[in-house]
Design a binder for these strands. Structure first.
Length: 886
DNA sequence: TGATTCACG
DNA sequence: ACGTACGTGAATCAA
């Protein structure tokens, strides 16, 4: 006989409901990027996945209830009445359950006037016991009545992936009755969840006893006369009709008029593409990453068009023309040090691929790459500049950069994976790096080198196709200048800064390491003494136990996982808890030690004594840069202890200085410009201290000298709040005042600066209408959640709508300044070099005698990088180290 | 891998 | 009634 089939029948409605309440405690954690709750979907998904794995079914169907009215409500309108209203957070997920099932390739069915139970019951009896084993899955124990020799019924326990199986034997063992007698039990005992009445005063226990004796509801009433007189007997007699009605209600219809048959629900496996789409939409990131995409990739691979390319070991001049794409393959992220494994170049029609050592040593290749009049397309120009520079090649005439183009089109598309970006733009002919090279520690060149060659050729083709294609879309968005005149030139400048690196005085850091290490040991002992035991101070969990359980201090704030031990919490405990002082000290020094002293020492190049960060040009949603490996944009400055780290950043030569210039209040100036608020503009034009000016207006102080430092501090917080898209709560937290007071500050502020209020309303309104906001230079950020029904998501999007044009325009301005400074330095005969950018600040190194010229050049360019309707102000300083250039 | 904490603008 | 300030990256712990 052929292998037996297995039919799995799932009660979709009840399982989804169970899944929802099973994860109800974490409702707010399960939300996708546009605010849809996903907990029921998540639980349901996991249940399906585990059932598919354990049961390996040949046939699967998910049945749903069709609606609120069924044949049961026709004769008993109260059936399932009295249930509390289904939460909206649940209902909103239901439409997506269909997408999930499509992804899994599972059939679903519902039938007007029938419940899911009836569909399942009917199919379970239709399944030929000779050919089918049947598994029924539900959250509703009623369905156990369907158990038979070939039918097992699994009922969900607490979670939904946890199932308890019911078989004929186990029901007998547990309750002493047959599956069909469960109906009789409901007839007698009723079921409050379905509003099935049953007989007065009879519960499950009594019902079981009666059934043991009389077998069925019918049996009970046939023998009712022989029963001893009792209250129970009376109830049975009075509720006879109800008992039969209840039995009828509880009986699953195993003969419902289905339009489908078992053959129609054959399970043919998941549609991985749809499943992946579903995961993406729901932000099920771990599922997405676990998805065995090999099948999917194979499918895609098969669909990919043939590609013609030539593998070459030597290059000839015919291989190079104008308008070609070029790609340098590295094996890891850090292109300063990553292994270079291959090079490909060409156009849509003809592509060359070669090994790095063959191609990058060729004078002909170098000549082409450096030729100013032969244009190129790249994916990540900056990476390509740096990688080629390692071979002494100065790449020139880059015209397209697919990574930068995609970033400008939508700052969300900042994946560094060409395939992912190509997919977004409906170009499917290139594979993921991960499928070719593997991931994590296992990244390597594939054994079959042809695989890599094909991959590299496909990348070049994708770049050649997408470069001009995305450029067209940029033009539609009026972003061509943003790309061609800002981001692309900046890539080259950043590459040069990164290659240059900044010199780090390792000895100074090592001195600090010794000093901090001694201090840490000392503080550690004091903490242990106070606590009365040794523990890991770095573990918030252990620290929480010590502070709030052992020592019994009041809990100020909780996090998802336990007690919060963040600074603001500890500061509130400082008066009553001497240990807190030590913990704060410990934290501060431990941070400096691990992140800055040790972290920095780890990345100093032995041979040159420099660190070479990588500026990420396509990460920040506002258009700012970010810095990694090491991050040189968060070197301590606020506290003296940490600030000393800056003493380790020094010029590359004796007699040189570190020179730094920063924009003063650039974000508020930008706000004054775009809001055109008269009072704020006036403050800047008249060169007033902006926070003092705000303090005078908002707190009604007459003269600047009457503004106390405390009032100024408050005004400063309000100004910050404005830039962030103020909320009364946020401001109250920051200032340690009540929400009401905070709200009053805000109200007064808007009264005194009406232009700001108008701007805020206007920018939010426009964002709701267009779905995005823009900076002064047409940098765009989409805000899909700005019209969300979810308050939190919507509020967040509204604050973002306010903040992004401010932060983003400020970022644009510094980028423009950098380009102009780089140009001016090139045209001058100064040796000065631009080294770092820290959002509103630029750091240079220069021979001491150049400092006056450099200062003039940099300040002039920065102050006039763009013309706003308020002046831009720049402050500069220089010194022996970054510490001294304050 | 996610959460927490903390460094910067 | 809802529960937050905007934008980043790195180290550490605890699963």
């Amino acid at each position: 006989m052929a292998k037996k089939n297995k039919l799995v029948l799932i009660d979709g409605s009840s399982v989804a409901f169970r899944a929802f309440f099973g994860l109800h405690g974490q409702l707010e954690k399960f939300k996708n990027h546009y605010g849809l709750h996903t907990n029921a979907l998540y639980g349901f998904h996991n249940m399906i996945q585990s059932v598919l794995n354990t049961e390996k079914p040949t046939h699967v169907l998910v049945a749903f209830d069709a609606g609120n009215t069924t044949f049961r409500t026709e004769y008993f309108p109260e059936y399932k009445a009295g249930r509390s209203k289904t939460p909206r957070e649940f209902t909103e997920q239901m439409p997506y359950l269909r997408d999930l099932l499509k992804g899994f390739g599972i059939a679903h069915y519902e039938l007007a006037n029938y419940e899911a139970d009836d569909i399942i019951g009917t199919l379970s009896v239709q399944a030929d016991p000779e050919k089918f084993d049947v598994v029924v899955i539900s959250g509703d124990r009623d369905l156990t009545q369907l158990a038979k020799e070939n039918v097992r019924v699994d009922i969900t326990k607490k979670g939904v992936s946890d199932l308890k199986p019911y078989t004929v034997e186990s029901i007998k063992e547990e309750m002493g009755i047959t599956p069909l007698q469960i109906i009789d039990m409901k007839g007698l005992a009723g079921d409050s969840s379905d509003n099935i009445p049953g007989v007065t005063k009879i519960g499950e226990k009594t019902a079981l006893k009666l059934l043991e004796e009389f077998g069925s509801v019918e049996g009970v009433y046939e023998n009712i006369d022989s029963m001893k007189p009792s209250k129970r007997k009376e109830n049975l007699i009075n509720d006879k009709e109800t008992a039969f009605l209840s039995k009828r209600l509880a009986t699953i219809d195993t003969n419902s008029p289905l339009e489908i048959a078992i053959e129609d629900v054959e399970y043919k496996g998941a549609d991985l593409k749809k499943l992946a789409e579903f995961y993406k939409e729901m932000d099920f990131k771990s599922h997405l990453s676990k998805l065995d995409t090999s099948e999917l990739d194979e499918e895609k691979e098969a669909k990919r068009t043939e590609i013609n390319f030539e593998v070459v070991t030597e290059v000839t001049s015919e291989m190079f023309t104008d308008d070609m794409a070029v790609y340098v393959q590295l094996l890891s992220d850090n292109y300063h040090t990553a292994e270079v494994v291959g090079v490909s170049w060409g156009n849509e029609d003809h592509i060359y691929v070669g090994a790095a050592e063959d191609i990058l040593t060729s004078p002909l290749f170098k000549e082409w790459a450096e030729n100013e009049s032969l244009t190129k397309a790249t994916f990540d120009a900056k990476q390509t500049y740096v990688a080629l520079n390692r071979y002494g090649i100065k790449l020139a005439a880059v015209k397209y950069d697919v990574l930068l183009e995609a970033y400008l089109l939508d700052v969300k598309d900042n994946s560094n994976d060409l395939a992912a970006i190509a997919e977004e733009y409906n170009y499917h002919d290139v594979a993921n790096d991960e499928t070719v090279y593997g991931k994590g520690a296992k990244i390597k060149v594939p054994e079959d080198i042809t695989e890599m060659h094909t991959h590299l050729a496909r990348k070049v083709k994708a770049i050649a196709v997408l470069g001009p294609d995305l450029m067209e879309q940029l033009e539609n968005n009026h972003q061509k200048e943003l790309f061609a005149d800002m981001e692309l030139p900046l890539a080259k400048i950043l590459a040069d800064m990164e290659i240059q690196g900044i010199t780090v005085n390792g000895h100074r850091l090592e001195e600090m390491r010794e000093e901090f290490s001694a201090r840490l040991k000392e503080i550690e002992q004091k903490i242990y003494a106070e606590a009365g035991e040794e523990f890991n101070i770095n573990s918030p969990k252990q620290l929480g136990v010590i502070l709030f359980e052992k020592m019994g201090y009041p809990v100020i704030k909780k996090t998802k996982t336990g007690y919060s031990t963040a600074v603001d919490v500890l500061e509130k405990l400082q008066d009553q808890a001497p240990i807190v002082e030590y913990i704060l000290d410990y934290r501060q020094i431990a941070k400096i030690q691990s992140t800055y002293v040790e972290g920095l020492l780890k990345v100093v190049r032995e041979d040159t004594g420099r660190v070479h960060t990588r500026y990420m040009q396509t990460i920040a949603r506002t258009g700012r840069l970010s810095s990694v490996d090491p991050n040189l944009q968060n070197i301590p400055i606020r506290l003296e202890e940490g600030r000393k780290i800056r003493q380790a950043f020094v010029p590359r030569e004796e007699g040189w200085k570190i020179f730094a210039s920063d924009y003063s209040q650039i974000e508020l100036r930008v706000l004054a410009h775009i809001s055109n608020d008269e009072h704020m503009k006036e403050a800047f034009i008249e060169e007033q201290d902006i926070h003092t000016s705000t303090a005078m207006r908002v707190f009604g102080v007459e003269k600047p000298e009457e503004v106390t430092s405390n009032i100024r501090r408050r005004a400063k917080a309000v100004n910050f709040g404005i830039v962030y898209g103020i909320s009364d709560y946020g401001l109250s937290q920051n200032l340690g005042i009540t929400r009401k007071e905070a709200q009053q500050f805000i109200d007064t502020y808007f009264k005194k600066y009406p232009g700001i209020e108008t701007y805020m309303h206007e920018v939010v309104r426009e964002a709701k209408e267009k779905g995005f906001v823009e900076t002064l230079f047409n940098r765009r950020r989409y805000l899909p959640e700005i019209n969300s029904r979810n308050f939190n998501l919507r509020s967040f999007a509204e604050r973002t709508a306010i903040n992004t044009p401010i932060q983003g325009s400020a970022a644009d301005i510094l980028k423009v300044a950098m380009i102009k400074i780089a140009q001016a330095l090139k045209e001058s005969d100064l040796k000065a070099t631009m080294l770092l950018q820290v959002h509103d600040e630029l750091i240079f190194e220069a021979p001491e005698e150049e400092i006056p010229a450099l200062q003039k050049l940099v300040e002039d360019v920065m102050e006039h990088a763009v013309e706003l309707n308020v002046p831009l102000k720049v402050e500069s300083d220089f010194g022996q180290s970054w510490y001294d250039a304050k």
